[in-house]
Design a protein around this nucleic acid. Sequence first.
DNA 1: GGAATAGTGTCTATCAGACAATATTGA
DNA 2: TCAATATTGTCTGATAGACACTATTCC
Lengths: 235, 235
Amino acid sequence: MSVDLVLLTVRDDQLAVLLVRRGIDPYRGRWALPGGFVRPGEDLADAAVRELAEETGLRHPPAHLEQLATYGTPGRDPRGHVVTVAFLALVPQSRAPVAGTDAADSRWAALGDTSTADLAFDHATIVADGLERARSKIEYSAVATAFCEPEFTVAALRRIYELVWGCRLDPRNFHRKVTGTAGFLVPTGRLTTRDGGRPAELYRRGEAGLLHPAMLRPARERPPGDGAARQDGSR
Amino acid sequence: MSVDLVLLTVRDDQLAVLLVRRGIDPYRGRWALPGGFVRPGEDLADAAVRELAEETGLRHPPAHLEQLATYGTPGRDPRGHVVTVAFLALVPQSRAPVAGTDAADSRWAALGDTSTADLAFDHATIVADGLERARSKIEYSAVATAFCEPEFTVAALRRIYELVWGCRLDPRNFHRKVTGTAGFLVPTGRLTTRDGGRPAELYRRGEAGLLHPAMLRPARERPPGDGAARQDGSR
DNA sequence: GGAATAGTGTCTATCAGACAATATTGA
DNA sequence: TCAATATTGTCTGATAGACACTATTCC
């Protein structure tokens, strides 16, 4: 009985997952998700947080942690019938572990990067399931704020949605939606300071866990970096 | 390592969950979810289907089966640290096990019935989680058809939504929504025969697994049997 | 015809998509 | 002033809510 973690953050304007290099067999030297065996009498979520701290040096509890799914197909682990409970964790970059600085060899892999397709065990599947969970969950809940710093701008939150969904969102419509949904954002009354450009309002997460009605994910995807792309291809 | 099943169906115009009476300690004589230990080398979903057949006499594989969550809090089982993977299964009444006819003592408990609050282990929590999963999943997916017979009417499907959500839905708007969502329903061209009342069109489930856009669950709940209730309380 | 049930017409309010315009900063 | 970024105005189309109406059966 083990736990594995899909720890996601947004860094360098990309959605990334934390990987660790395995130091022991099986799959020695291969990249894998952080995780390990549950200790006798230990709660599953506790084991997940403990492994995260031990293996990656995460200093704070993650802003969001939820159970993802349990993987128990015979043969998924060459050591025998090992069932693993996968967790999805989201953290802002300021609270994310710094890869490579701790006991274990670790790195951040951008999602969509081909290297996440070549992980140990069935971890590529688990990463894909975690990403899909994140994609759908930010539609109807406020968990996207778990990627954000304690105070953040509407533009920062919009960028989170764009990176997770892999699409462009209209700034006006997004702003109207998030500021018009009761309990989603709480204005702090403070502004960003920046070089050039109008300062932005700073917000904190509100009390609302679920969004009514949900954010609408565009049906057709547009690459998040492609500012020239148009939905209908015209012009 | 065990599996437990939340098997739901609609019978007697109520949403109901199948319970079995425990024949052995712990909790001997108490009602519990069907389930049991996973055999070495057995896949989790296979174990779920096997236990369902063994304990309840279910003859067909369930129309819908999905993993719900894994429960591993220390102390949830007095025998020690037993982790259980819960599954949610949905079946139409025609394919539901007939309670009390098989080896194990079983019965259908209407949800909302107080008896589901007094189950063995943490099974009351698991039932509540399963119900919540069903409630949210019929919003954005077509799984509500798993409660229906192979051919069903729009009114039958609407009744499913009303019972699962615990509210009344407008027949016109529901009809427009489900027939207007591509891939949700496939007309068979056949009609019901009935005593009195216009015959209804019969449909089969379509290919669509997910609904775009989602069905909207009313924010305020109205009791499904209360035809006189009005949303604003006027008149 | 009347009761019962199924299905349709249609008005309105709401909300998302589109996109232009204005606001506020630093260089 | 311009470049850069944030924020708002507003038109339009799609769709959900409300509810009255028509349709088809059996008695």
